[in-house]
Simulated assay, not measured.
Amino acid sequence: MNDFDDLVRQFLAAEKTAHVRPRWRSKGHPDFAESKMAVGVPESRVVGTVVMIAHKVRLPAKYSWSLLFRGKRILALDVNPSRSHKNLLRKGSVDCTHWQRWPTMDAEEDRREQNFTHWCLDFWKAANIVTTFAVLSPPRGVQLRLIVNEDFDRR
Score class of each variant (00 low, 15 high):
His118Trp: 01
Pro138Gln: 13
Asn87His: 08
Pro42Gln: 06
Lys62Gln: 14
Pro81Tyr: 13
Cys120Ala: 06
Lys62Asp: 10
Ala61Met: 02
Thr97Glu: 10
Asp106Glu: 04
Asn80Ile: 05
Gly48Arg: 02
Ala134Cys: 07
Ile74Cys: 05
Lys72Ser: 15
Arg154Pro: 01
Ile129Asp: 01
Arg25Asp: 05
Val57Gly: 03
Trp99Lys: 02
Ala38His: 09
Phe116Glu: 07
Phe123Asn: 04
Phe152Tyr: 15
Val8Glu: 01
Trp119Arg: 08
Gly40Ser: 13
Asn149Val: 04
Pro42Arg: 04
Glu15Gln: 05
Thr131Cys: 14
Leu146Gln: 11
Lys125Asp: 07
Val135Glu: 02
Lys27Phe: 10
Pro42Met: 10
Arg83Phe: 15
Gly40Arg: 12
Thr104Glu: 12
Val135Phe: 09
Arg101Asn: 08
Gly28Asn: 12
Trp24Gln: 06
Thr49Gln: 11
Asp6Phe: 05
Lys72Tyr: 13
Ile53Cys: 05
Ala54Pro: 04
Leu144Cys: 04
Pro81Arg: 08
Ala38Cys: 03
Phe4Thr: 03
Asp122Val: 06
His55Ile: 12
Gly92Ala: 12
Arg90Thr: 12
Leu89Ala: 03
Asp78Ser: 13
Ser35Trp: 03
Gly40Ala: 13
Trp65Tyr: 09
Ser93Thr: 11
Lys36Met: 15
Ala33Arg: 07
Leu89Tyr: 15
Leu59Arg: 15
Glu34Gly: 13
Phe152Asn: 01
Lys56Val: 09
Ala61Trp: 07
Arg58His: 10
Val94Phe: 02
Phe152Pro: 00
Val94Asn: 01
Glu150Thr: 07
Gly48Asn: 09
Ala61Gly: 00
Ala61Ile: 01
Ser44Pro: 11
Phe32Leu: 15
Trp124Asp: 08
Asp31Pro: 00
Thr132Leu: 12
Ala18Trp: 08
Ala107Cys: 03
Phe116Lys: 05
Val20Gly: 01
Phe69Tyr: 15
Phe4Asn: 00
His85Asp: 02
Lys91His: 11
Thr132His: 04
Val47Asp: 03
Thr131Trp: 02
Leu88Phe: 05
Asn128Met: 08
Gly28Arg: 05
Ala14Val: 02
Gly28Phe: 07
Ala127Val: 09
Phe133Ile: 10
Val79Asn: 04
Phe116Val: 05
Ala61Arg: 10
Cys96Phe: 10
Ala134Glu: 09
Tyr63Ile: 12
Ser44Arg: 12
Lys62Asn: 14
Glu34Phe: 08
Ala14Tyr: 02
